[in-house]
C-alpha cells in the first residue's frame, strides 16, 4: 500500500471507485499518465480539461475498453483492471457516450430494454419454448422500460424509432438505457454536449434527481462550465493526460494552474 501518494479526496474510506497511478499509453503517446482518483459513494464528481486532455480515455479505461499499462483500478473493493466491459457493467457501472450510440431503427422502448438484458434471469432458449416464466419476465422488462422512459420524459415517444428523436431526447434515452442496467456508478461523457442553455439547466437538475432516486454515484465529463460548477461536488482537472488540480468547484475555479490551462499563460501573469 505504500510507495504512492494518494491525493486527498473528500472521503477516501468510502470510495466506490478508486484508481491508483493509472498510466495508459498508445504506442509512443501517453494519453493518461499517473492518474489517481478516489470517488466516494453517492457523490457527483466531474473531470474537466481542454480538448485532448485524455478525459474520454479515462472513461474508456474505467469501463474496460482499455487495460492500462500501469496502475490499479478497484470498484467497490474489487479490482476491475483487465475485465471486459460487459463484466464491469454487471458489477454495476454504466456509461453513456460522447457521440450517441443508440440503435436508430429500434424504438425507444426496445433501446431501453436492451439495457435491462444484463439483469434478466431467464436464458434465451426459454423464448422458443414459450415458457410462461419467460413471458412474465419479458412483461416485467417492458414495464421497467416504460417506467424509465417516463422518468426521462419519453413516455410519449415509446414506439418511435430512436433515430427520429431530437438530439436532447436521444441523450436522455441513452441515460435511461444506462439506468436500465441498474448501475451504482454512472459515467456520463459530455451529457450536455449540443444542448441549449435551457436544456443544460434541466439536465443539471435531472442529474441531481436521478442520483437521489436511484442511489447513484455519478462521474461526468463536461465542457459546459456552468453545468460542471453547478452540479459537481468535486472536480478533477486534466491537462496533457495528467491531473493538474482537484477539489471543490470553488477551489478549482481559483487555481492558477487551471486558469492557465484554460486561458493561457498571459492571463495568469496579468492577474498576478
Amino acid at each position: 500500500m505504500s510507495g504512492f501518494v494518494l491525493p486527498t479526496p473528500p472521503d477516501y474510506a468510502g470510495a466506490l471507485l478508486l484508481a491508483r497511478n493509472v498510466t495508459m499509453r498508445f504506442g509512443g503517446v501517453t494519453a493518461v499518465s499517473d492518474l489517481s482518483l478516489a470517488l466516494p459513494a453517492g457523490a457527483i464528481a466531474g473531470i474537466i480539461g481542454p480538448n485532448g486532455a485524455g478525459k474520454t480515455t479515462v472513461f474508456n479505461v474505467l469501463s474496460g475498453f482499455y487495460t492500462p499499462q500501469e496502475g490499479e483500478i478497484t470498484f467497490d473493493g474489487a479490482s476491475i483492471r483487465g475485465k471486459e466491459p460487459n463484466d464491469i457493467c454487471r458489477l454495476g457501472m454504466a456509461r453513456t457516450f460522447q457521440n450517441i450510440r443508440l440503435s436508430p431503427q429500434m424504438t425507444v422502448l426496445e433501446n431501453i430494454m436492451v439495457g435491462c438484458h444484463v439483469r434478466r434471469h431467464c436464458p434465451w432458449w426459454m423464448a422458443p419454448l414459450g415458457l410462461p416464466r419467460f413471458y412474465r419476465e419479458e412483461e416485467e422488462l417492458r414495464e421497467k422500460g416504460r417506467r424509465l422512459a417516463e422518468r426521462v420524459h419519453l413516455s410519449e415517444q415509446l414506439d418511435e424509432t430512436a433515430g427520429s428523436l431530437p438530439y436532447g431526447a436521444q441523450r436522455r434515452l441513452e441515460i435511461a438505457r444506462a439506468l436500465a442496467t441498474e448501475p451504482r456508478l454512472l459515467l456520463l461523457d459530455e451529457p450536455a454536449a449540443g444542448m441549449n442553455p435551457q436544456e443544460s439547466l434541466e439536465l443539471m437538475h435531472f442529474i441531481g434527481h436521478i442520483r437521489d432516486e436511484f442511489a447513484l454515484t455519478i462521474l461526468l465529463i463536461e465542457h459546459d462550465m456552468k453545468v460542471v460548477m453547478g452540479v459537481c461536488e468535486y472536480i478533477w482537472v486534466m491537462e496533457y493526460g495528467a491531473l493538474i488540480a482537484e477539489g471543490t468547484p470553488d477551489v478549482v475555479r481559483n487555481d492558477p494552474l487551471v486558469i492557465r490551462a484554460y486561458l493561457g499563460e498571459d492571463v495568469v501573469v496579468q492577474n498576478a
Binding site: S103, P104, M106, M113, A178
Partner: peptide, 29 residues
C-alpha cells in the same frame, strides 16, 4: 419469431447497430 421479437432479438439488433454500446450494456457480444 419468438427469439427475434423477445428481448433477445433486441440484444442481437443492438449488437448489429453498435457493438460497443452493447458491450457497455453488459451484453457478452
Amino acid at each position: 419469431a419468438r427469439l427475434c421479437y423477445s428481448n433477445f432479438g433486441n440484444v442481437l439488433r443492438c449488437i448489429r447497430d453498435n457493438e460497443i454500446a452493447a458491450s457497455v450494456m453488459g451484453i457478452n457480444v
